[in-house]
């Protein structure tokens, strides 16, 4: 009900509160040392990490060492091609001390890294049962949205466009519909390449956006993080202020209601 607005505009995943609506990622940075100042500039309070086999040749520190303790970790299940693999990665991440958050990615299309909704749903069911706060990355689909609610998802993360393409909200009508029906927060994930696109998603009513590539690969990731943060705030404020839309209909051609006023 948008007729009655909450004063307090806090975002919740499960019962965990966030004041920032910009989620970020740790992939693709030229130097890991940029992550901390980027987080500071963007105000992001939730950041994704991935789990991989250790490469014996690369003697690098664990990525977690680069993330301030005040920022919550959102491990993803990237690399999983089935629900079972995603479940296994999630359990390992939790055991490793990353908390209860998990972003499910079950990817079966290696060209565009598109998610398998059926596998995602299955993994969501299992992990929500085990007490995880599950944020499933999904192809925008109405039926699956409802099934994910029923399975206990804490959010719905429809993709805006294929991962890393920076194409923006190519799935706009579908995401819009998901925003309308979703009972949990909707986070537009993947494809957001410019702050204006993040603002567009927020104006449309998305609860948050996740931006990784566009920040990490920009010339100045710290400034880009800040720019995205401002765009997300602007979009959110515009949504709450219910901006007047563009005028799309021309004035009367032939009167339809004249008969009502003799």
């Amino acid at each position: 009900m948008s007729t009655i607005k909450a004063e307090d505009d806090t975002l919740y995943f499960g019962d965990v509160a966030f004041s920032s609506r910009l989620l970020t990622g740790t992939g693709k940075f030229s130097s890991r040392d940029i992550i901390e100042p980027m987080l500071e500039a963007s105000g992001s309070e939730l950041i994704t990490v991935a789990l991989r086999r250790v490469d014996p040749k690369a003697k690098e520190k664990d990525i977690l060492q680069y993330i301030p303790k005040s920022v919550r970790i959102l491990p993803n299940t990237s690399g999983a091609r089935t629900a079972d693999e995603a479940v296994r990665i999630a359990r390992i991440a939790r055991e490793a001390g990353c908390g209860d958050f998990i972003k499910i990615e079950v990817i079966t299309d290696m060209k565009y890294l598109l998610p398998d909704n059926a596998g995602t749903l299955k993994a969501t069911e299992i992990l929500a049962q085990e007490g995880f706060i599950v944020l499933p990355y999904m192809m925008p689909d109405i039926t699956v949205t409802k099934q994910l609610h029923d399975a206990g998802a804490a959010a719905i993360m429809p993709l805006g466009a294929p991962i890393g393409t920076n194409r923006g909200l190519e799935m706009k009508p579908m995401i819009k519909r998901i925003i309308e029906i979703s009972k949990v927060p909707v986070v537009v994930d993947a494809g957001i390449g410019r702050p204006s696109q993040a603002a567009e998603a927020m104006e449309m009513g998305a609860d948050a956006v996740l931006v990784n590539t566009a920040i990490a690969t920009s010339h100045d990731p710290i400034a880009a993080g800040k720019a995205f943060a401002l765009a997300v705030q602007a979009g959110r404020m515009a949504y709450l202020a219910q901006m007047a839309g563009k005028r799309t209909y021309a004035e009367a051609s032939s009167p339809l209601t004249g008969f009502l006023r003799p």
Binding site: T3, Q242, A244, Y249, E251, T257, G258
Partner: peptide, 30 residues
């Protein structure tokens, strides 16, 4: 404002059902 938006929400519904909106009836009809 309600008429100019691309999609109408509950506030717009209320505005469009108000007596005030009868001055915009022809535009609503089109």
């Amino acid at each position: 404002n309600s008429l100019d938006r691309d999609e109408q929400d509950q506030c717009d519904l209320l505005n469009l059902l108000s007596l005030t909106a009868q001055d915009f009836l022809e535009e609503m009809a089109q």
